[in-house]
């Protein structure tokens, strides 16, 4: 049973919002059973950054996605439509989320006790 569903919709490079949203999800994992759903431009966070990020210039926070299991976060989802829209199916991804159709997403939203949007 998902207690908290975190919906992440910000692209990674345009602002700090994606990075801070990930921090919020990690904080949530300390208190309850959480799930993460990447939607829209938020799915772009999953693309493996191609350029080496200079230390301190911009934090490559996405590598933290690979540590989610250590934080007991096992339910990581992506919106299938968004994946199609952004052509992510053949991209190298940091982690592979479970893809959900719109119907699946709707069911997840209904099944979660609380939904937090970022």
């Amino acid at each position: 049973m998902t207690e908290l569903l975190f919906i992440l919709s910000h692209p990674p490079g345009a602002s700090v919002y994606a990075q801070e949203a990930f921090d919020a999800a990690l904080a949530g994992s300390a208190f309850s059973n959480i799930a993460i759903l990447f939607v829209g431009a938020g799915c772009l966070q999953l693309i493996q950054p191609k350029l080496a990020v200079e230390a301190h210039e911009r934090k490559d926070f996405q590598r933290g996605f690979k540590a989610l299991a250590d934080y007991d976060v096992h339910d990581v989802y992506g919106c299938e439509d968004s994946f199609k829209q952004f052509g992510l199916h053949n991209q190298a991804l940091v982690i592979q989320p479970t893809l959900l159709t719109r119907v699946d997403i709707s069911a997840r939203l209904k099944g979660a006790q609380r939904v937090l949007c970022f």
Binding site: L4, S9, A27, G28, F31, S32, L116, C117, F118
Partner: peptide, 21 residues
Amino acid sequence: SGLGQLIEASLVSDRVISFGA
């Protein structure tokens, strides 16, 4: 305070309403 306050509030309230950036 810390993010724990958001999580606690989310868990004890009936609804969380997010006002996005």
